[in-house]
């Protein structure tokens, strides 16, 4: 292949406006007219990207690997959400600004009633239920809101500088009368925790605990870990966003065996994934790998988290792996 600089040298002169130079000037008549015409319209409330709402059906949206990982709309799962908050300031912090945006940081979910009251005081029509492990709220509790307003809430994300907990933002102006934001907070075996946040139409029935016999959430447990972590069997090697064909040689080189977890991606790829199946039989070389994990009890075997096509962002992390994992 040609040297990188050489390619650039060839491409640069093709630019109609030379690299480094500006096109038009913002003080030109056309630019000023355009600005005036654009800003004469109200920017409106379409403040957020059209993030499609994903209500989980039979298969729950789960988060695979990331410790403080991110799921846009369905479920947030992360180890440690319910752990004792040593050294953290509070179980949760909820504040509201003048525009009606509510900022929430949650580190410990067990005070569901307190969190619910705080949310309601600040204009979020929320119901928060705490559900122990192996239980769930009997469904249906209400009908789900289908025309989910874009921008109602942000993707839950890490609290900078903290290992556990997450934060999100809710725009209280976008709730319509008769809607309730239903949060269910769950203990997960293995010490993790999760929450689902679903917008429902009133009335919402109270949570009646029933055994959780739905297909099990893929729990972020201590026996299943990222194979690419430091000390993992693929340490130092990035698999995310590569094709299976690219990754397999490295796996063979390290004397490992590959198995596959076929991921189910919800519509709109909001972040998070379901599990279609696990298999030992190879998938196509052109399938896309998003992460690799391994089980404590099965040394020498790595499980590739794969899809049969490329998505615009990594479903495991709801975006670039670099945003979540610092190697």
């Amino acid at each position: 292949m040609k040297h990188i600089d050489e390619i650039e040298t060839m491409v640069r002169p093709l630019a109609r406006v030379a690299p480094g130079r500006h096109g038009g000037s913002p003080s030109g008549a056309g630019a000023r007219t355009l600005l005036a015409s654009i800003t004469s319209e109200d920017p409106g409330t379409a403040v957020a990207a059209p993030r499609r709402a994903w209500r989980y059906g039979p298969r729950r949206l789960v988060l695979g690997l990331a410790a403080a990982a991110v799921v846009a709309t369905g479920v947030v799962v992360g180890p440690g959400l319910l752990q004792d908050g040593h050294g953290v300031s509070a179980a949760y912090a909820v504040t509201r600004d003048a525009d009606g945006i509510v900022y929430i940081e949650v580190r410990d979910f067990r005070d569901a009633a307190g969190l619910q009251k705080r949310l309601r005081d600040l204009g979020v029509p929320a119901i928060v239920d705490y559900v122990p492990a192996d239980k769930k709220c009997g469904e249906p509790r209400a009908t789900y809101v289908r025309d989910f307003p874009p921008g109602l809430y942000s993707v839950p994300e890490n609290i900078p500088g903290e290992r556990t907990g997450w934060r999100m933002r809710i725009d209280t102006k976008l709730f319509k009368p008769g809607q309730t934001f239903v949060w269910t907070i769950t203990d997960l075996p293995g010490g993790g925790g999760g929450t689902s946040t679903i917008l429902m139409h009133d009335p919402v029935a109270p949570c009646v605990l029933v055994p959780d016999d739905t297909p099990k959430m893929k729990v972020v447990d201590s026996s299943s870990r990222r194979a690419t972590r430091k000390g993992g069997s693929l340490a130092g090697y990035r698999v995310d966003e590569k094709t299976v064909g690219e990754v397999l040689p490295e796996i063979e080189k390290r004397g490992l065996k590959a198995t596959y977890l076929i991921m189910a991606i919800p519509p709109g790829n909001p972040g998070g994934f379901g599990e279609l199946r696990r298999q030992d039989t190879p998938v196509g070389d052109d399938w896309i790998v998003w992460e690799a994990e391994e089980d404590k009890g099965a040394p020498g075997v790595v499980r590739l988290l794969v899809t049969d096509k490329r998505y615009d962002r990594n479903p495991v992390y709801g975006g670039p792996r670099d945003d979540v994992i610092r190697d």
Binding site: M10, V11, P13, L14, A15, R16, V17, G23, G24, S25, G28, A29, G30, A31, T33, L34, S37
Partner: peptide, 29 residues
Amino acid sequence: QARSVELDAEMADLYGAAPDSGVALTAIA
């Protein structure tokens, strides 16, 4: 877009000076 004629004209100015159109560049282009 409903735009001003000025904007079209300003853009058109930028098309005046075509990039170098030597034989090699044309081939590369």
